[in-house]
Design a protein around this nucleic acid. Structure first.
Length: 570
RNA sequence: GCCCCUGUGGCUCAAUUGGAUAGAGCGUUUGGUUGCGGACCAAAAGGUUUCAGGUUCAAGUCCUGACAGGGGUACCA
């Protein structure tokens, strides 16, 4: 069950009016724009929606915008939802929704339930959202929390918008970071058993390394000391990464983030079945055939006219001892985008990257194009960094120094709801200060609880009604809903489909927090102005109970889209 | 140097992607319930959207150039 956003329905009506006016000779022939603009009115005096289409048409039609608007009004097709239209200087068409129609929509929302807001925008296209994908070399940090929340919420929004979505975590287990993890574990393992350590390689200092080494020593004894060094490292690497991934999955689950698939970079370099070349070798051959590979200083480079540099390294014997095993990230990116768009057949691939990776964007798009794929099928969400504030002071973090706040600590301290909400309050383009004290604080300064409180408050009203013996699902006379606060609440509930369209199109999940806050505010205003449970006025009570239930449903829907709980009590 | 993001009331941010009178929260000031949960609501003050040009019927939004803050610019990922 899907719904057409009201603005789309209005745009269709305006388009029909344009065509009818032309057919009737009231407007000269001209090409009607592909997209007829309609937007929510910013001021109540302008009605509910406004279309500036006539302003832009004035030149081609060679007539004053206001005249065009007036001509359109008489040709507007009859609809049940338009209550009034006005042509206003300098040429706007202002629409007011029909109030009786608005009141009836409460029933439609109740019938839709948590499907309210679903739209058909995606037309069933398959989209992969790949996010977090942090190096599996240690616990998830708070920096990845923003990534996780953005990715998961974008995925949820796209699902609501009619896409088939898969959530994927890309496991970087083929690079030097993975080796560093293996060496780190090996060294502490060896030290525990009194064996010499490898001093010539960098290691991670975190306490979790010690825990891994402890487990390894307990389960494997001296086995890895007796193995050839590189073979031991390879095995330890594989084992350690699986261990880390397990805790990564657990930590993210505490934030209510789950993945459908975990794709391992290493698989791109494994030989194919029956001695076929690896996926990487296959893609490398294709790129070479396209003339995108140059050889220089014993290394392979990717070159493309769209790059600002003349070439980017794709494989070199100097990166690491075993170049067959360990190419650069660009090599993997090339294989991976092919894997997504061709081998697994996604229509679109969405990447969620921290802004520190912005330099990689042109490379990924170039290497996509170089393989004959349309780069517009690749969308990269770049989000700015998070700074964690405690007591008003920035908490500096660095994984390589071992000083960081883990996601697990954060979730344990403040719970998933404040984290998810606060990570979504701003556009991805803005650096985010995460105020730990505010997140923990359970007061009216904390915006997180404002929305949840509205949901809780409705639950309280419904409990009260039940105590008085009222049936919550009894049909009420919705025509009794005429109070401005009632209608304002309904108007906002009806806007959900277009909010989802907006968030899905722009890949901008922050619109949800804004919408949820506005919806909550309108419920609170309704609650103040209109007593719901009134034994002296039972018909009105039944109608308002329907409205309250509908509002609760929409609030719950938005909270769930954001991955938050919709509590009955707080 | 080059690339990316940002600059909007005291503070933190929105603005449906180029539309009319730029909106919220926090903070400040002043009020509100002998009634469904006060984690609520109302009112007031507070703005030349960093600056200078340009495009357009229309610019916070697009273009050019400054200025300021952040990030990136490895044969790391």
């Amino acid at each position: 069950m899907t719904f057409l956003p009201l603005r789309d329905r209005l745009a269709a009506a305006v388009r029909a009016a344009l065509e009818a006016a032309q057919a009737a000779g009231d407007l000269p022939p001209f090409e009607i724009p592909a997209a007829v603009p309609v937007e929510p009115a910013r001021h109540a005096a302008h009605g509910d929606y406004a279309s500036p289409v006539c302003l832009g048409l004035a030149r081609v039609v060679r007539r004053a915008p206001l005249q065009i608007a007036q001509a359109l009004i008489s040709h507007l097709p009859p609809t049940d939802f338009i209550g009034g239209v006005e042509a206003v200087a300098p040429g706007y068409l202002n629409f007011t929704l029909s109030e009786p129609w608005l009141a009836q929509q409460v029933a439609a929302i109740l019938e839709a339930g948590e499907r309210w807001g679903n739209i058909a925008l995606g037309e069933g296209q398959r989209v992969q959202v790949e996010f977090v994908s942090a190096n599996p070399t240690g616990p998830i940090t708070i920096g990845s929390a923003r990534n996780a929340v953005i990715g998961d919420t974008v995925a949820a929004v796209l699902e609501a918008a009619g896409y088939q979505v898969e959530r994927e975590y890309y496991v970087n287990d083929a690079g030097s970071k993975a080796r560093k993890l293996a060496v780190s574990v090996f060294n502490q393992y060896a030290a525990r058993l009194g064996a010499p350590v490898m001093l010539d390689e960098e290691t991670y200092p975190g306490a979790y390394i010690g825990a891994l080494a402890e487990t390894l020593a307990a389960s494997a004894g001296r086995r890895y000391l007796e193995l050839e060094r590189e073979a031991a490292l390879r095995e330890i690497m594989r084992w350690a990464i699986e261990q880390v991934l397990q805790t990564v999955a657990e930590d993210l689950a505490r934030l209510r983030v789950h993945f459908d698939t975990w794709r391992h970079e290493r698989d791109f370099y494994a030989p194919g079945p029956e001695g076929q070349p690896s996926l990487f070798e296959q893609r490398l051959a294709a790129l070479r055939e396209g003339g995108y590979i140059v050889e220089r200083d014993e290394a392979l480079w990717f070159t493309h006219p769209d790059l600002d540099k003349d070439a980017v390294l794709i494989r070199s014997p100097r990166v690491v001892p075993n170049p067959e095993d360990r190419p650069t990230y660009l090599a993997s990116d090339a294989v991976y985008v092919w894997d997504k768009l061709v081998l697994r057949g996604f229509d679109r691939a969405i990447y969620v990257w921290g802004a520190d990776h912005h330099g990689d964007v042109p490379r990924l798009l170039a290497v996509t194009q170089a393989q004959g794929l349309d780069p517009s099928r690749v969308n990269i969400i770049l989000y700015q960094m998070v700074t964690l504030l405690r007591g008003g002071v920035e908490v500096r973090m660095s994984k390589s120094s071992g000083e960081f706040v883990t996601l697990r600590e954060l979730v344990d301290e403040v719970g998933p709801d404040p984290i998810r909400f606060m990570m979504l309050t701003r556009t991805v383009d803005v650096t985010l200060d995460f105020d730990l004290d505010l997140a923990i604080e359970q007061s009216d300064r904390n915006p997180v609880y404002y929305v949840q409180y509205a949901h809780t408050r409705i639950a309280g009203v419904l409990r009260k009604a039940t105590e008085l013996g009222l049936a919550l699902d009894a049909p009420g006379d919705l025509t009794l809903l005429t109070h401005p606060s009632e209608l304002a609440l309904i108007r906002k509930m009806l806007a959900l489909p277009e909010i989802i369209a907006l968030a899905a199109t722009a890949l901008a999940p922050h619109h949800l927090t804004l919408y949820a806050t506005e919806l909550a505010a309108l419920f609170h205003a309704f609650y103040r102005d209109c007593r719901v449970v009134d034994p002296e006025a039972l018909p009105l009570t039944q109608a308002r109970l329907m409205l309250a239930r509908a509002a609760q449903t929409v609030l719950a829907r938005v909270l769930h889209l954001m991955g938050m709980a919709a509590p009955e009590r707080m």
